[in-house]
């Protein structure tokens, strides 16, 4: 059941990011809902499956944005790998752990989006106009999702 729900979420997230971006973007900032998915998937599933899913997702996203083919694979798998590495050291039930989501989202946007801006100045500006606000949106969305998950867990107990 858990895997079925994950697949459904994965499809929804991919559709939001790849097919309906113009309808979900806020101030022309791409949603990258997949970051949230990968973050929570890594927390809930085995590390190996999370890493494989990250690699596959990166490949899928590269297919849809093939200008720098391989960037999504590197960015997503690194994000998940670092999360797995920290999983044993950080107490993930705390809200503060969401800061990792913010840092990860910022890192992914930095790797994936910034190289597309022509010229250093535009690329540098995009860090503040696209990468940081985008990461902040991901953080807020993550906060909402975490609250929902926590509430569900409490109810289950």
């Amino acid at each position: 059941m858990r895997i079925f729900i994950a697949i459904v979420f994965f499809i929804i997230v991919c559709l939001i990011d790849l097919a309906f971006t113009p309808y979900f973007s806020l101030f022309h900032i791409k949603p990258y809902a997949i970051i949230l998915f990968l973050y929570f998937f890594t927390l809930k599933f085995s590390p190996l499956s999370a890493l494989i899913v990250a690699g596959f997702t990166g490949f899928l996203y590269d297919i849809f944005a093939p200008d720098w083919f391989g960037l999504h694979i590197i960015a997503f798998s690194t994000f998940v790998y670092v999360e797995i590495a920290l999983r044993d050291r950080v107490y993930w039930e705390r809200m503060i752990s969401l800061l990792f989501l913010f840092a990860g989202a910022f890192f992914i946007r930095l790797v994936v989006d910034v190289p597309f801006y022509a010229g250093f100045l535009k690329a540098f500006t995009s860090v503040f106009t696209s990468a940081l606000p985008g990461a902040l949106i991901n953080l807020l969305a993550g906060l909402v999702v975490k609250i929902i998950i926590d509430a569900k867990q409490k109810n289950a107990i």
Binding site: G55, G58, G70, L71, I73, I74, T78, Y81
Partner: peptide, 14 residues
């Protein structure tokens, strides 16, 4: 696994 995935990405990119 991470090394293989990373290598794949780098190969694609290069």
């Amino acid at each position: 696994v991470y090394g293989v995935i990373l290598l794949t990405g780098v190969v694609f990119l290069l």
